[in-house]
């Protein structure tokens, strides 16, 4: 098998293992939660027969491993169980709310990547300039400012004082795109701030590093135009490590959507998990943890494979380490 094939195969195996481990973690939530999950929903004064009936419905009376087996079997059939408090099918709940969260997180990541790269390149090619120094300030603040607070302050500035944007809420881009843009502008921006700053910093560092490499000096010695050297050779190589960083940011933005949805009252996955945590609605919590992590692991896998494909050094070292 060639090295790229071996690298891809190993990444896929590792991802499958992680998904299995996370499914065990998600399954364990109900058993690790303090107190009796059924009593928590039915109330302390519920009679024993009702409690027993619900335990049987939720398979909680069966042996441990059987419970896990039944849960996973259901999921493979697309059956995530029923919400204990919302009286709906969990799969249906997620099917309704996942697109909402994706319509905020995906644009946030794309915007963060585009602007992060542009800012990073500007700073690296104008090292020490005011723009470059501003980037350091931006990165420091972006890492220190709570995004939920920035969101609230934006609501006050753009919604209350200036009246440019609606205070909160959500509209689907497929129903009214303009309304979606107006309502998603603030939540998407607060999700994009931190990844954008991180990407800009990384692009700047990489680019400065690449510019000092021998092959760039050679390209210059050959008399290539500075423009061609910078954008064709330096930028291309500076961008490869960004792929890994993007995977990390995808994970963080998925978590950050909990805050964005909470601040802007958006009915997505993040808001759903907060409702379920407060109601101790464990089938929903388990399903959300599993679904979001599987998506994140899948995105990571795709980015990892493309990383190995873009940079041959990675798959070579990976082969050496693994074999």
């Amino acid at each position: 098998m060639n090295s790229l094939g071996a690298y891809t195969r190993n990444r896929i195996l590792l991802s499958l293992f992680i998904i299995f481990a996370v499914s065990v973690f998600a399954f364990l939530i109900v058993h690790l939660m303090p107190g009796d999950p059924v009593r928590a929903v039915l109330g302390i004064e519920a009679d024993e027969a009702a409690v027993q009936k619900m335990r049987e419905e939720l398979n909680l009376d069966k042996p441990f491993l059987t419970q896990y087996w039944l849960w996973m079997k259901g999921i493979f059939k697309g059956n995530f169980g029923r919400s204990l408090t919302l009286n709906t099918d969990v799969g249906e709940l997620i099917g309704r709310r996942l697109p909402v969260t994706l319509s905020l997180t995906i644009p946030a990541l794309i915007i963060a990547a585009i602007f992060g790269i542009i800012i990073g390149v500007i700073c690296a090619t104008n090292r020490g300039s005011i723009a470059d120094q501003l980037l350091t300030v931006l990165v420091t603040i972006a890492n220190g400012v709570p995004i939920f607070w920035i969101g609230i302050m934006m609501i006050y500035l753009f919604g209350v004082l200036l009246g440019w944007l609606p205070l909160m809420g959500y509209a689907s881009p497929f129903e009214s795109f303009v309304e979606y843009l107006r309502k998603a502008a603030m939540p998407v921006s607060i999700l994009a701030i931190r990844p954008m700053a991180e990407i800009a910093r990384q692009v700047r560092t990489n680019m400065l590093e690449v510019i000092n490499q021998d092959y760039i000096r050679t390209a210059r010695a050959y008399g290539l135009s500075e423009r061609k050297v910078k954008y064709k050779y330096a930028l291309k190589n500076a961008l490869i490590p960004i792929v890994t960083l993007l995977a990390l940011q995808a994970r963080d933005v998925a978590g950050g959507s909990v805050l964005a949805e909470q601040v802007f009252s958006i009915a997505g996955m993040g808001q759903l998990i907060m409702i379920s945590v407060l109601n101790r609605d464990f089938p929903v919590i388990q399903a959300i943890v599993l679904v979001i992590t599987v998506i994140v692991v899948f995105v990571n896998l795709l980015l990892d494979i493309s990383y190995g494909w873009l940079d041959p050094r990675i798959r070579m070292t990976a082969r050496k380490v693994i074999n």
């Binding site: 996370v22 939530i29 979001i292």
Partner: peptide, 13 residues
């Protein structure tokens, strides 16, 4: 591999 905030919320629960 689990989004950190999600993980922290579950551990908090």
């Amino acid at each position: 591999s689990i989004p950190p905030l999600l993980f922290t919320i579950v551990i908090g629960l």
